[in-house]
């Protein structure tokens, strides 16, 4: 869970970096996308690096989901529905730790939509295009405000998932010591905030006409 989560967090950082290229114009953004496709050539075949990354990501996601489902099932067995408390009270749990499971399901569904939308371009509000930049700009036009809204909601869900996920991953990997907890919390909150804002900027910029 922690290791695959760490791989996905590292990927998100790279993904955010690529997204922010949108502010440097179409050439920079499309050039970055093209460079990803030819990264490592001629040592690797064209698209070689990309598919390698996709393979690692897919494996990480599947293992992450497998671990989550087995934890979920174990928790259900450890306290079945028939043994639920009549009264429960939140003592320490946070909104983010409490929404890890259903939040994770939402993020998985969003990821599928996101790939169909901007990667494969099967779903193409505003028109399909070979240029990743145009796909992005077409997809988040003001008349498709509901697409933007959906992305905003999903990215915020990812932010909450990361807030507890980064903390929990560090603890699982044995980093948690009493004197390190303020730092761990700062890293978890800081990184999830940076990623949330970084992912929110491009679609919002398009919707509000800052990028066209």
């Amino acid at each position: 869970m922690a290791v695959t989560g760490a791989i996905l967090v590292l990927y998100l950082i790279a993904h955010m970096y690529g997204n922010l290229k949108v502010f440097s114009g179409q050439e920079a953004f499309d050039g970055y996308a093209h460079n990803l496709r030819v990264l490592g050539t001629p040592l690797l075949p064209e698209h070689g690096f990309l598919w390698l990354a996709r393979l690692i990501l897919l494996a990480s996601v599947l293992i992450h989901i497998y671990a989550a489902v087995s934890l979920w099932l174990r928790a259900r067995r450890a306290r079945p529905a028939s043994q639920r408390y009549q009264v429960t009270k939140r003592v320490h749990r946070t909104y983010s730790s409490y929404t890890m499971r259903w939040g994770g399901v939402l993020i998985a569904l969003f990821t599928i939509f996101h790939i169909l939308h901007l990667t494969v371009n099967v779903i193409s509000p505003g028109g399909a295009s070979d240029s990743p930049y145009e796909r992005l700009v077409n997809g988040f036009q003001p008349e498709f405000w509901f697409v933007t809204l959906f992305y905003v909601a999903a990215v915020i869900a990812v932010g909450f998932h990361l807030r507890h996920g980064i903390w929990s991953g560090l603890a699982t990997l044995g980093v948690n010591q009493a004197n390190r907890q303020p730092k761990m919390n700062a890293v978890a909150t800081g990184l999830s905030l940076i990623l949330t804002v970084g992912f929110l900027l491009p679609p919002l910029a398009v919707t509000f006409g800052l990028v066209s």
Partner: peptide
Amino acid sequence: EDFGGCTNIGECAAV
């Protein structure tokens, strides 16, 4: 023993 798995929520230490 069929205890659940830890997800680092922290309710345990809080109580």
